[in-house]
């Protein structure tokens, strides 16, 4: 197969699949949240309201596409794609099973974080181009937040990287075939999880779109499909990060029960673990209030960063002793 055909085939398979997953997560979130606050959630369209999102999508497409008169038109149009495209780019490096992936990068982790750093650019542009004070504040918050949380995020990842000795995600999962890294690196897991919430702009770190303060933050002026692109990008990132937690700390496609090894396809475990993480993230959103923006910064630089460094130091010390 020529590379071009391969690319087109994999795109034709993976893109709808991802979109389907993202749509499912949105439905899943609405259903879970409704359950938490004692509501029902979508229920009219299809079984359990599963087709709700199809109707939502239709509505968004049919909406008038408003670009504010004083907005910076070009940036306003580009911004949603800068959020949407990198989020979907990252999937290229995510291995679902030891031979199911788009590309097995040697530096898969770097690739993923490289792509995700583009997302705040899109958010800042959206905030700036909308010519709206709320979205500007949302964009600025996002910039500050992403910069200060990128560092602890990478550091938390290093825990898993040091143990496996590889930056390739497939190798990292293979290194966990006996013991998952959540056991060896419990603190790194906790740090990664917290920082991930901030990276995703999810509660309790959803400052950039803080509904009660900034109405909708950076996407306040976006309507129709442009808004949908932000939404898709956001939830795609939620999926990527959940998958990343699964790969880095929860043993990827390795079975949690050794007896079931080989009986159940590994991909099932991968999906289950990923959705477990998704569920926990939604659960947190349903129950916690939001941190304040200065507390967020304080938490990152004064709490997470030193603790991460300490964790790395101890890990490397132990590794040195073990491999001496």
């Amino acid at each position: 197969m020529s590379p071009l055909v391969r690319l087109l085939v994999s795109l034709a398979i993976s893109f709808p699949l991802l979109l389907l997953n993202v749509v499912f997560i949105i439905w899943f979130e609405r259903k879970t949240l409704a359950d938490i606050y004692g509501g029902i959630g979508p229920k009219h369209h299809g079984p359990f309201g599963l087709f709700q999102l199809a109707f939502d999508g239709m509505k968004l497409i049919a909406k008038e596409d408003v670009i504010p008169a004083k907005a910076d038109k070009m940036l306003f149009i580009i911004a949603p794609f800068l959020v949407f495209v990198p989020a979907f780019m990252t999937f290229a490096a995510i291995p679902v099973y030891n031979n199911i992936y788009a590309r097995n990068f040697d530096i898969g982790i770097f690739y993923i974080f490289g792509a995700t750093t583009l997302i705040p650019v899109g958010i800042i542009l959206a905030g700036w181009a909308s010519f709206n004070k709320y979205s500007l504040l949302g964009g600025l918050r996002s910039a500050a937040q992403q910069i200060s949380y990128e560092v602890p995020l990478l550091m938390a990842t290093l825990g898993a990287v040091m143990l496996s000795g590889s930056l390739s995600l497939v190798e990292i999962v293979k290194a966990q075939s006996k013991v998952w890294f959540i056991v060896l690196q419990p603190f790194a897991f906790i740090f990664f999880f917290i920082v991930m919430l901030a990276e995703l702009n999810r509660a309790p770190f959803d400052m950039p779109q803080a509904e009660s303060e900034l109405v909708a933050g950076y996407n306040v002026e976006y309507t129709g499909m442009r808004f949908a692109f932000f939404m898709f990008g956001e939830y795609a990132m939620l999926l990527v990060m959940s998958a990343l937690v699964t790969i880095l700390f929860l043993g990827g496609w390795n079975s949690p029960i050794p007896a079931l090894n080989g009986l159940v396809p590994g991909i099932t475990w991968f999906v289950l673990k990923t959705y477990l993480i998704v569920f926990i993230i939604i659960w947190i959103r349903g129950t916690f209030p939001r941190l304040r923006v200065d507390q967020l910064m304080h938490f990152s630089w004064k709490v997470l960063l030193p603790l991460n460094l300490a964790n790395l130091l101890i890990t490397s010390a132990i590794l040195t002793v073990v491999y001496l």
């Binding site: 606050y37 004692g38 009660s212 916690f288 209030p289």
Partner: peptide, 17 residues
């Protein structure tokens, strides 16, 4: 108040219930 602090509607809906 908790809603204003940025939580989802959960606490508010508990009270409204």
């Amino acid at each position: 108040l908790v809603n204003d602090l940025g939580a989802m509607f959960t606490p508010l809906l508990y009270s409204v219930r």
